[in-house]
Design a protein around this nucleic acid. Structure first.
Lengths: 419, 419
DNA sequence: AGCAGTTAGTTTGTACCTCGCACAAACTTA
DNA sequence: TAAGTTTGTGCGAGGTACAAACTAACTGCT
């Protein structure tokens, strides 16, 4: 029998710029699941279930995962021997009768996670325990326009100071960085305001110096992962993290996985268009969400409305002044939160994640700002039956959230959540 | 050792409407991969690789999937015995020397796929071969406001007429339907203009009558799946299908999987906001993308600009008139495609899928419309290095694309692509 | 013609994983 | 004290992927 080359019902035509995938190049990313990978995957999933749900007995885990009890035993036993997990005291069973369950959880003395937050001009490092506790924080500054070698020296020194305080080698090092990051290759593409970092293969460098697994991702995605492991996103399978401030950004957790997009892009929400031919944006386009929902807009409006010290207006300040009875603050807050809502509305219409965690300036406004945003979204979104939209803030602790996120990056890659 | 209930670094607070997942309910969807499931998964992936890449030898498949040749043999041998696959003639090896490869591909006499396209008032059914060929098309009409029983009778009759022409039992039946669909539960939620379908558990009904696997999904998602299996999306891991017409819709293929969102929602792009406080939309909100990029807008503009027969203006007609030298048509076409571009720009900023397949009215404009849209997008999107955006049209054959999509739904579920 | 070299596909044995069954341990209830 | 219930653990069965070794088939050089 002879086959024709490739039966083609691709009736459409492609524009010239289209990628040539028809030749079957892209088919290369078909991957089968190997036997050994399966073990690693299931081990990771058990750990994640344990992490998401808190201390649980083997039997509970088996029920949760829908597998045999013996399977769980086989998975957790080596981990107990490795001192990663510990068996708790028999808890009085909630059901009547039966042998009491022995809950399992992470060993408080288990290795910690190294975390680095890299912003233009400053490095922050710390250790994060699996409980989310932050220890051994160190800070340093670097010359944003200096020599690469100098930066690496500062980074190494700071990180060494932090890591040396760990009882035992940490699981790995997670780096959250501002700017454009190629997380697949572990390099920093560009960071505005810090040209010294351009093109830096930071993962390779740190991996070599510390002989530990190193992962890097950009700031919003670190916030997302931090939420997933240590914050309001814990245990959730679908949610988004939204950052507002001088710029706007976002990151998505979709179907139990961090969405990274092609080459680590995606989530550049700030430059989605909410006002065709609207105000000019820093990016050179018009009507980006960033032109109406970031701090510059808020401060310009505050100036126009003759607020005192408009340059220092924040969401937190507006909430405070509104609570103190300022009508003007209340109105501006309402407009601000409405503008923020539009971006989330578009996200909701597109992906229907239903759950959003706010960071940055708007998170400073706390529950009140979140509730205002939620109400605006409710009014702006086309509602589906049974759909509830949840808005959460995670703004307390500021940099700590990002540091936990960096640590979470290590967890995510360590547990091989991706299949 | 005693564990605290659940260490909580969820510093944030939740708005009242938030779902209570913190209790660990949601953790229930942790699933381990069982050994037997692994076999099914890998079998599905091999078939998909074969499908996406055309006839391939065992050795090629092994290389493509990065597994041992023996593994491939073990997987395909039973399929050859089942007559699903056939071995082709030894093709002269492209490299010098060595035993010539025996390409494998789907048996032309393999079972076909049943497909149903359900629109208000009309049912269309057909058989789709694995090559994409369409056979045994049948059509029928039904009373949109009539009795449920009457509709079921028409549906059964039409489908029976089609299925009876198959040589052997098809793999399953796929249904593409207008309206809101709960694909998880296989029921039609609501269809505008066809109240008779409201709440109909169509999957259960058809499954019982025909004793075959039945899947249902809504129209845009069927187009997406049709593109993935039989159209320009073949072999791609990330792309979106965008439908324009009286309404706008979209569906996404993300990381090799159809994105379904929670309860099958997601992709309701038509009501994302591109013009804050813009024109009133049918949905009751303002400034939806639908208000500037759907046919009603186009026709209103055509009327305003005194086009002849403005009610029958389509993208195809504009392209034709522009080609014939009409400046007015060219200008309106430019504005129309620019408006369409905005929605895709927002999608691109959000998910960075980089590849879009157009359906519906705008697809009628062919390459020219696609190229215009691509150019507008290029101008409106914040470009990342190395990023190329591809716009493809798949408008020829109209209903046939949707029917192939319905068939593709069966393939997708049959091959257990979801893990 | 003959032999080395190369590639495709198969056979055989091994390692790994999950599952079901049986059983001991530990606790409640009557 | 006896029966019932639940937890956690050995052990063998079944299924899957992999590595090594083998046969088959073709090319090219001598």
């Amino acid at each position: 029998m002879k086959f024709e080359s490739q039966p083609s019902y691709s009736l459409g035509q492609r524009t010239p710029a289209s990628r040539e995938v028809a030749a079957g190049e892209n088919g290369g990313n078909v991957t089968l699941v190997s036997q050994s990978a399966l073990g690693a995957i299931n081990r990771g999933r058990v750990l994640q279930a344990l992490y998401d749900n808190g201390p649980k007995s083997r039997a509970d885990l088996a029920r949760l995962a829908g597998v045999n009890r013996t399977t769980i035993t086989g998975i957790v036993q080596p981990m107990i021997e490795d001192q990663l997990l510990v068996e708790g005291d028999a808890s009085p069973s909630d059901v009547k009768g039966g042998k009491p369950a022995r809950p399992l959880y992470f060993n408080p003395d288990a290795p910690m996670l190294g975390a680095v937050l890299l912003l233009p001009g400053t490095i922050q490092t710390c250790l994060v325990a699996l409980t989310g506790e932050i220890k051994a924080v160190a800070k340093a500054e670097f010359d944003t326009h200096g020599e690469t070698e100098a930066f690496i020296a500062v980074m190494t020194e700071t990180l060494t100071a932090t890591l040396s305080q760990a009882q035992q080698a940490p699981f790995g090092i997670g780096v959250a960085s501002a700017g454009m990051i190629d997380s697949d290759n572990g390099t920093i593409l560009t960071v505005n305001l810090a040209p010294v970092l351009t093109g830096l293969p930071l993962v390779a460098i740190l991996q070599e110096r510390f002989s530990l697994p190193v992962v890097i991702d950009h700031h919003p995605r670190a916030l997302l992962v931090g939420d997933r492991w240590f914050g309001p996103g814990r245990g959730q399978q679908n949610f988004a993290a939204v950052y507002t401030g001088e710029v706007l950004g976002g990151a998505f957790f979709i179907d139990g996985k961090v969405y990274r997009g092609l080459a680590g892009s995606g989530g550049e929400l700030g430059h989605s268009v909410v006002q065709i031919d609207g105000a000019l944006c820093n990016c050179g386009k018009h009507g980006c969400w960033e032109t109406v929902a970031a701090l510059p807009w808020l401060r310009k409006e505050a100036a126009r409305l003759s607020f005192p010290h408009p340059k220092s207006v924040t969401c937190a300040r507006l909430v405070k002044e509104a609570d103190e009875g300022s009508k003007a603050a209340e109105e501006l807050l309402d407009r601000y939160t409405r503008n923020v809502a539009f971006g989330i509305v578009n996200l909701q219409q597109t992906l229907s994640l239903n759950s959003y965690v706010l960071h940055g300036d708007v998170a400073g406004g706390g529950m009140k700002a979140a509730e205002l945003i939620r109400q605006h979204i409710e009014q702006l979104v086309v509602k589906r039956p049974g759909q509830e939209i949840s808005i959460t803030v995670n703004g307390i602790g500021e940099g700590h959230t990002a540091l936990r996120g960096a640590a979470g990056l290590v967890l995510s890659s360590h547990l091989k959540l991706v299949i």
